[in-house]
Design a protein around this nucleic acid. Structure first.
Lengths: 320, 320
DNA sequence: CTGTTAGCGCCTTCAG
DNA sequence: CTGAAGGCGCTAACAG
């Protein structure tokens, strides 16, 4: 491997001069700098990350922790994060295994953005206590070194139910995500509250945010219920699963049964009838998270933030 | 930050003894090791990545380069990669920006798996020339330090056309991916060859593997053509886009028009009629890639590999 | 079994 | 404007 000393030797300068030249310091005559850079270039010199990191104690890397990586909306979210951070000279790596959590205390990344329910809150807190800075997207967490950017789950749930209530007289089903998930809990709590205030009859079905659990919930509803019910699927994935079951039944979506999802993931645009769902900008969400971590790394203390959501009308909620 | 010297001091041992203890060397009495580990634990010691890397010249990290990250099948692919590499004590990071390419020569990663058409072949070759090892999933590339795991695109194209030919008399359209993309080129070449051998009439429409380009192609076909045509979409995404256009027309998929895709991405399972497509195991693909890079890093010279594909029948190719 | 020591590659203060 | 030197945190000969 060709290192900085090699370049210094060939250019007949000291190591430090070579370093200055490479890092564009004004301490070197333009002339010598150009000569050094030419040699570096010729030798295909590329600085070694570990060496630089060890000295600078900074990697300019942000770790983005995602699970269920194949899931639907990560692409846009990550783009939003990338776009902002690149402009501010940070690189982004996506990490999706538990072992990668240690990158944070190992100082392989300068900061982290976390949307990963397998990343325990205790661990996050212990890292925060060590002085590492993080932005969380999937839980509330109050700490000097942690800041959150959360969806307005409660607002979204209300909007979803408002849309359903208008069309449904008999019963409303709430299909949840995995127990303990923040987003699911919030949406469920807000939905229950909303329904109870209006004294509407409802039932909760446990799901896990997967298409398969949507299918199961749909089968359960078909068996135990009559037509003219409404379903608030706490995410779109499950709604997709439901479609495949109802479309094989004699219940017509948007007529016998009304469905609202959450997330407005792109593939739902190809469902027929089009799914009514709760929409928000994934890239804005990512951008907000990126901004927060950037500010934190620069000594500011940003406040938590809520991401707006709105109802996206489809035909899965129709007239009775 | 608490470092190894701090631990050594508190334990009244030398730095090296502390290091040995922490790394589980048998050179230390069990008793002293336990004592040292206890102290390390108490101080919440976590080794610094840069320091270790600088010394060992090895990160145990594999970079996986993906673009169009939101795309459909990356989840399974990445799982396949993860599963294998974790068992062999490597961690995986996903990189999706051009700037991250330099992680390879900077030695931030020990090796790379590349499925990213924005990663130029010249760059890959130059890194290979520097001694870095890579596995490519989206091009042919012959080099000591590069090895490829490719889909059997040609076989898949043949199978797709075989399915179409049986049902279509009039004309077959081939809708391509972005020009210059290996997978698209291969599928297209094989499809053309196949059709020419059988003297069937066909037409090529330029796409770019996106849903939107599928929609455009569908509109074009609606305008210029009569019913009873067949379409080989060189990937599923475009087929999905087509569905949305044809479903608004009076052409019935599987009857007036026959469609075959490529990839068998999960969301096509929710299309009606179900899409006929070319299927392969994404996780096996990832696993194969992971194995290759692992073997290469351990001094073996694995051979290139082809991933089997097969026809997955749906109802988008029906009887006329 | 344990301690001493010499770097890994790079940056940066301090002299010159 | 340039050079010498120290050190970031850790490992691994080599001595003891």
């Amino acid at each position: 491997m060709v290192g900085i000393r090699e370049i210094a030797k060939r250019a007949n300068v000291s190591i430090s001069t070579a370093s200055y030249a490479i890092n564009g310091s004004s301490k070197v005559k333009t002339e010598t700098r150009d000569r050094i850079l030419a040699i570096a270039n010729e030798l295909n010199y590329i600085p070694n990350m570990a060496g630089r990191t060890l000295k600078k104690q900074k990697t300019n890397l942000i770790g983005v922790y995602l699970t269920n990586y194949g899931g639907a909306f990560y692409g846009e979210l990550v783009s939003g994060i990338h776009d902002f951070l690149h402009q501010h000279h940070y690189d982004v790596i996506i990490c999706s295994s538990e072992r990668a959590h240690t990158f944070i205390p190992e100082k392989m990344v300068d900061g982290a953005i976390i949307l990963d329910s397998t990343f325990s809150t205790e661990k996050i807190e212990s890292y925060a206590a060590r002085g590492h800075q993080m932005v969380v997207l999937d839980r509330e967490l109050s700490h000097q070194n942690v800041c959150s950017v959360l969806l307005d789950n409660r607002g979204g749930a209300k909007k979803a139910l408002l849309a359903l209530e208008k069309k449904v007289t008999k019963k409303i089903y709430l299909v949840t995500g995995p127990p303990g998930t923040y987003d699911s809990n919030e949406r469920l709590a807000a939905a229950k509250k909303c329904l109870e205030e209006r004294k509407l009859s409802y039932e909760v079905i446990l799901g896990d945010f997967s298409k398969e659990s949507g299918r199961q919930a749909a089968r359960e509803i078909l068996q135990k219920s009559e037509k003219e019910v409404g379903i608030f699927c706490l995410n779109d994935e499950m709604a997709i699963g439901m479609y495949s079951v109802f479309q094989k039944s004699n219940w017509k979506i948007g007529k016998d049964i009304h469905i609202v999802g959450f997330d407005n993931i792109e593939v739902t645009h190809y469902l027929r009838p089009r799914l009514t769902t709760i929409d928000y900008s994934k890239s804005d969400w990512g951008k907000a998270a990126a901004e927060k971590i950037y500010f934190m790394l620069n000594g500011k203390q940003p406040s938590n933030q809520l991401v707006d959501v709105k109802l996206k009308g489809g035909k899965s909620v129709g007239s009775i």
